[in-house]
Design a protein around this nucleic acid. Sequence first.
DNA 1: AATACCTCCAACCGCAGTTTG
DNA 2: ACAAACTGCGGTTGGAGGTAT
Length: 313
Amino acid sequence: MGRPPCCDKVGVKKGPWTPEEDIMLVSYVQEHGPGNWRSVPTNTGLRRCSKSCRLRWTNYLRPGIKRGSFTEDEEKMIIQLQALLGNKWAAIASYLPERTDNDIKNHWNTHLKKKLKKLKEPPNGHSMVGFSSPHTISRGQWEKRLQTDINKAKQALHEALSLEKPSPNVPQLKPSNGYYSFTELKPYNGPAYASSIENIARLLKGWVKNSTKQAQENSSTTLNDSVSSEGTQIGPKQCGVDLSEAFESLFGFESSNSDFSQSMSPEGSERKPDVGNQNPLSMLEDWLLDEGGVVQGKEDLANFSFDEDVELF
DNA sequence: AATACCTCCAACCGCAGTTTG
DNA sequence: ACAAACTGCGGTTGGAGGTAT
């Protein structure tokens, strides 16, 4: 027979999360780390299904989430990646580690899709020159772009792997307890989810509900400030062009959905113990060294930029 | 001031692949 | 081997807040 249900279907609460529930969830994750969601409702007393707990954590309470409006560079990156990957929001989110796939998806659906539609169909009826998407560029161009992206990723990986000395831009993978705090890009030490605490602080502000507009502005500002003050906020130059830095996100934090991060996070390694036998980095290194694409990648890199989309903004 | 309409986003739903008893 | 739960993902929805009329 199968396994027992993770939580009772009867009496499971739905709808918006209350601050009390958030605190319960964060407290639990502080103690046990993310993962093993099926045990969360039982152990916390939350009347939520495990799925809802996981979603709440990954989309809202998880450390390092940046909220607020998207920067132009983030938007450019999303547009590029969407053109490259399609609606693979989780994959796109892995390039924008401070944004959740849900956020990116929402932003795409509410802003970028309209923006692109508008630009594709200008009043004069001519399609925009210079806009590139799989639908508007030739197949040859498209394939070249795809190859360029792969090469860039390989190049970035090669650079990261060949660094003996820790680069200030490359996070170190030495967790003391198995968890990483992306926000700080250093090993996550102990149960102090710094950014979660700030998320909770923000929640509590809302909870205390002097819910004036002023309070909301302050709280969101506080969060954004706190993120940037930790030094890892993806700034315009960081996230826009340099995929090598974007690649850091694949290795230096516990992304919500990245395949890489899943295999490297405690959660992922729990579920895929085989990875532990072969260093995932060495696997990637093998792949990297398998093709001599790095040099070519550098050439292409020089020819590749988001500049051609600059007209979008 | 009242109402309608619009925007945004948190959360839900359903599916597919994976894991587990 | 199989069935059922778990997990992750993408699509969609509903309600709160904002804006226009």
